[in-house]
Each structure stands twice: as C-alpha cells, then as structure tokens.
Amino acid sequence: MLGYLSRRLFQTLLILFILSIVIYYMLGLMPGDPIDLLIGSNPKVTKEDIVRLKKLYGLDQPIYIRYFKWLKQVVLHQDLGFSRTHKKPTSELLHGRLVNTFKLMLASFLLSLLIALPIGIYSAIHHYSKSDFIISIFAFIGISIPSFWLGLMLMALFSEKLGWLPASGMQTIGIDSLSDKLKYMILPTISVSVQSIGYWVRYMRSSMLEVINKDYIRTARAKGLDEEVILFKHALRNALIPIITIMALSLPGLVSGATITEMIFSWPGMGRLLLDSVLSTDYYVAMIAFLLLAILTMASNFVADILYAVIDPRIRISTHA
C-alpha cells in the first residue's frame, strides 16, 4: 500500500511540474502583459513609467527565467507570491476563496447525492412506470437548464418577488449566525446542483437497471432473499462503481463550473477568482488556482480508486508495479 501511495505521489508531482510549465508558458503567451493593459486605461503613463514598472514586476525578463524564479520562490521559500490585482499575498487570497468554494461545492455535492441517488434507484426499480417517466422528464429538464439562467430565475422569484431569500453574497452585514449563512447558500446551491442531479439520476438509473437484470440478482431472488437485501447489499454496491467515477470526476468541474454561479450570486469563490486572475493577467494567482484544480482532479481520481476497493471486494489495490 505504501509503495502504491508513493508511486501515486510521484506521478502527481511529475504531472504538476509539467502542468506548471505548460500553464506558465500559456499565460505568458496571452496578448498584453499587465503593464500593457494598464497603459490602455491610463493616458498619463509615460515611457519611463513603462520601463520602471516592467522591471519592478520582472516582466522585462524572458519567460523561462520568470518561470524558474517563480518555481524557486514557491518550492524553496513556500511563497506563492503577491497578487498584483488584489494587493494581497496569493496564499491568503486563495485560502478564503477555497473555503468559500468548498462550502458551496460540499453543499451542492451532498444535495445532489441525497436527491439523485434515491431517485435514480427508485426510477430503476420502477422502470417504465409512470413515476419513472415523470422522473426522467424532470431529469432531462435539470440537465438542459443552464445554471446561470436558473440562478437568475431563482433570484427573481425568491428574492425580488417573494423576498424570502437574499439575492447575493454570503451573509448579512453585521449578522454572524449559522442560519443566516445557510440562508445565503440556498439559491447558489440549488443553482449549481440542478444539473448534476439530472445527470446523476440518469446515471444511477442506468447503472442500477443494468445490475438488477443480472443473473446473480435473479439467483438471489430465486433463493428467496429479502428484496431490501438484494437491492441494497447486492445490486446497489455493484451499481455504485461507475457512479463513483462520475462523481469523483465531477468534483473539479463543480469548482470551475461554479464560476458563473459565483458571479451571479456574488459568491467570492475560486471560480470567480480564477476567471478574474486570467482576465487581469494576475499570473501568481492564476498559476496557483490552475494547479489547485489539477490537484483536485488527481485527488478525486485517487479517492475514486480507493473507493472502488472499498465497495467491490474483487478490486484490490496492487502493491506491485
């Protein structure tokens, strides 16, 4: 197991290193560095200002030197740099944003899980029934609704018309209570979750449907086993394997995909930060945000691998190469 873990860790580090080069180079290829953009908005910037500022920010050096300086700073000094646009250390900036996105992601993940799995299972058990038909229609509607549009509609209804829920932000200024914070989470969570609920209901239904028609389920029924045991002990465990992969792979998508929802609900999270940092060529922040997404993707894959082994006893993590 230890050998497996160290191999995975080595792979992760290697991928991160290669990715960091690619991302840094691609960011460098973007037209206009931060100073170029500044000149476009301020007619009073002089030639002397341009030279001085480019030197101060190290933008007068070739990209590979800038990359190695950045790498040295991150690896040797654990310094993620200072955000030029936010005027804050990148680590401090990311910490708050990461926590906010994590809250939204977790709420959305749990909500999707709690709704989609039971409904998907129910739909599979009652396949081709009226309720299955209705569930399928709603699932397809959920998949088809763009989250930004849904967000706007929810806001118009629950904030503007009914006045039940706040339109945006994370909490009421001056109030620090859990119920207040939860209230602010409702609309963005629903907005992010609806699409994944639609997808996961369909995946769960197909996966479960495939399993409940297998020979070993039929054999279990013939043996007279209780239906609950058949469904939840035999069928569900097998049906969950593909679902785990889908869920694990959707985690990074929830972070990057929440960008629009974060914009609409003014939720200060990672998605919004990533977009802002790329648009404003805030290299330090963009680099770390991209790498965090890469780490999240790899980590969720790793968790999926471990969960396979937990759910399916036939799968064992190999300790050999």
Binding site: L152, M155, A156, S159, E160, G163, P166, A167, S168, G169, I173, M263, I264, F265, S266, R272
Partner: peptide, 20 residues
Amino acid sequence: VIYKFITSTNALESNLLSGT
C-alpha cells in the same frame, strides 16, 4: 457608509428591490 460588492448587475437590481 457601507459598500457591498455585487458582481452581477442582475443581483444588484434584485438587492435593491429586496431592500438589501
């Protein structure tokens, strides 16, 4: 004097209408 940052203009309108 309090400034609230609301990045979306739709949310800005909703906040004004709801009295936030």
